[in-house]
């Protein structure tokens, strides 16, 4: 199979280029894209990419495969290859450090900005705070985010305004805390999001939903935040 990989080493390359590599795949086994990258790296150790859990829970290996963002470790080659060719590029819209490794600084900054931790100043006593199964169920589809950045780097609004628009991942996490019955900072959280950019730059394009490797729905969460902001304004 022909694999075309994005290469860029800031020390030796004046500009990025696509490198074509012929990879022989073992028969009768549908490899994941990460396995293919590993095969290439065994021959050419200079290829750089991130990888850790190799089972889709750590979020290290978000890349762009034949035009679509996803996790290399849980994307079968058969699912993305078209015309016998696999094209692997770094996640779009973020500065490239080297090869498939992007600088995720601005992505993490937006995550930190939403204060991604529970805020509750009422003493909890010696046991856990109680939460009904129904209230806990409101966190399903939110807390599972793995911070892989597949969504935010597929979002045109985030490409244009990465400093001002929180982006789908950050907003999903913002809603994860807004939706938590144990959190007391709803008003402060909303106040910090109440401007033309932070939330309202979402245009409902839904690329985030289409690429999320965990099957989460940031657009829906953003819709809930919008509703909360609007009802707060009236």
């Amino acid at each position: 199979m022909l694999v075309s990989v994005y290469r860029y080493n800031p020390e030796t390359d004046r500009e990025p280029y696509m490198q074509d590599v012929e990879v022989s795949l073992p028969e009768g086994k549908d490899l994941m894209v990460l396995d293919v990258l590993n095969l290439i790296k065994e021959k050419d150790q200079s290829l750089s990419y991130r990888r850790s859990c190799r089972e889709g829970v750590c979020g290290s290996d978000g890349v762009n495969m034949n035009g679509k963002n996803g996790l290399a470790c849980i994307t079968p080659v058969s699912e993305v290859v078209t015309g016998g060719k696999l094209v692997v590029r770094p996640l779009p819209g973020l500065p490239v450090i080297r090869d498939l490794v992007v600088d995720m600084g601005v992505f993490y900054k937006q995550y930190q900005r939403i204060k991604p931790y529970l805020q509750n100043s009422t003493p909890a006593g010696g046991r856990e705070r109680l939460q009904s199964p129904e209230d806990r169920a409101k966190l399903d589809g939110l807390y599972e985010c793995i911070l892989c950045a597949c969504c935010s780097t597929s979002c045109p609004s985030f490409w244009w305004n990465p400093e001002k628009f929180v982006g789908p991942s950050g907003l999903l996490q913002a809603y994860r805390f807004l939706a938590d019955s144990r959190d007391e900072a709803t008003e402060e959280r909303l106040a910090e999001l109440d401007d033309p950019f932070s939330v309202f730059r979402c245009r409902g394009i839904m690329n985030c939903v289409s690429v999320c490797p965990k099957g989460l729905n940031p657009t829906k969460a953003i819709g809930h935040i919008r509703d909360m902001l609007l009802s707060r304004a009236t």
């Binding site: 529970l118 909890a124 856990e128 705070r129 939460q131 806990r136 807390y143």
Partner: peptide, 20 residues
């Protein structure tokens, strides 16, 4: 140590009575 984690926000699953 586990209750501290809950207080930090860990989204434990719950029983009907609201406990972990």
């Amino acid at each position: 140590a586990v209750f501290e984690l809950e207080h930090m926000g860990l989204p434990f699953s719950r029983f009907e009575n609201g406990r972990i």
